[in-house]
Design a protein around this nucleic acid. Structure first.
Lengths: 223, 223
DNA sequence: GTCTATATTGCGATAGAC
DNA sequence: GTCTATCGCAATATAGAC
């Protein structure tokens, strides 16, 4: 399965396509450009993948396999809702670190859906939505989250903060330092904002120390 | 300037292009499809706009004119940082209500930039970023926001919550009711989350009543 | 300003040699 | 499995009649 050869033509096409489709979208890339960048010829795209769309579909599916694994690892763990949210946010950041084009495929398909959005991507979105809203409902019942919190809105808000950061990464590099530490820093800030809020609360520094009902340490130490 | 005729060909092309480019992106639309949908022929695209890209550029610029107006209306108003953030969020939601394709152009250009991203869009992003980070710095100095808040991260987080909601609107309609009231509801929830946090704070219902240092009423009444 | 007709280029896919 | 060569078609843009 994984022989020693540096890169098979098939894998080379997958690697080149991953980059080019992420940058220009499905319609913006030709099989000629694709095969030229891969050091081969356009006939091989049809031979290995049955055409340009077949290559795109293969790449799209591969992008979302790790998303499924992430969900498997985070759904149904024994932890408080707060801890689950923290773990989710950290896992997502880690995943985007390893899959630098994932955001572009997800967002690109949301904005300009190809015919592969429904069969490939919808189920992952559904799973993420269910995980988040269920976790929020659980937290509302347990008293960790306020009773008037709308789980759907909260899910969209959290997903938005996480995703948009990576969408904007190419531009935000101009005013934010790059690198993984920056990602980690942003995640910490997002979790803090999301769980505790922006406001300085009544004349104290450590907000959570007396305003939160319990396990206030988990915010700083649990991360 | 605005005669009575229902739609000039030029305006018809702008209207049709606004929809099609938003749905499929610049590369995904042909001038044939464009002109056919507009009830004319492809030669008129070149005549009026100098080509497909010219039409796209005209549409892109028109999309962002209201963004500039929004920024003019929100920058430099006399209000507390908290009020500015609330007003900003509400204005953005209102704008997206009036410009249903704005999100797609913004996000589409972020994910797959055309050659018009730099000359057309960058300056608006810069202005939004400056407005938000300045407002956060102001709020930190005034004591409204916590001292360790990172203005850049907070700006990305808020922009992410607002934008992603509209990016995901076509999909979220499947589990959220549609319509403007839903937008309003989401904005309220986002502002609440962003300003106060998700957590139920120590054995009380109205979080802000004793945990925040002042003007606790503005959160519920000011909206 | 708007149309038809067309020039030219580039596209995706395939046939067939090796 | 990979290549060259090519087919058929759709792309943008333009010329010229009205």
């Amino acid at each position: 399965m994984d022989e020693k050869e540096p890169l098979e033509v098939k894998d080379k096409l997958l690697a080149v396509g991953e980059k080019l489709f992420a940058q220009k979208g499905l319609a913006g890339v030709s099989i000629r450009e694709l095969s030229q960048e891969a050091g081969t010829n356009s006939a091989l795209v049809s031979y290995h993948f049955g055409g340009k769309e077949g290559l795109y579909a293969a790449i799209l599916e591969a992008q979302f396999v790790p998303v499924g694994l992430l969900l498997d690892s985070v759904i149904g763990v024994k932890a408080t809702p707060t801890e689950k949210i923290i773990q989710y946010a950290r896992s997502v950041a880690l995943l985007h670190g390893k899959m630098p084009y994932l955001t572009r495929y997800l967002t690109g398909e949301l904005v300009n859906p190809s015919r592969f959005f429904e069969p490939v991507i919808r189920k992952y979105i559904q799973r993420i939505y269910m995980f988040l809203t269920n976790t929020f409902r659980e937290g509302i019942e347990s008293g960790e989250f306020r009773r008037d919190l709308d789980p759907s809105s909260a899910a969209l808000a959290l997903a938005g903060m996480m995703n948009f950061y990576f969408i904007a990464r190419p531009i935000s590099r101009h005013f934010l330092p790059g690198g993984d530490e920056q990602n980690e820093r942003y995640v910490l800030e997002v979790v803090k904002i999301f769980l505790d809020g922006v406001r300085e609360h009544a004349g104290e520094q450590e907000v959570s120390s007396h305003c939160s009902s319990r396990d206030s340490g988990s915010r700083s130490s649990g991360l």
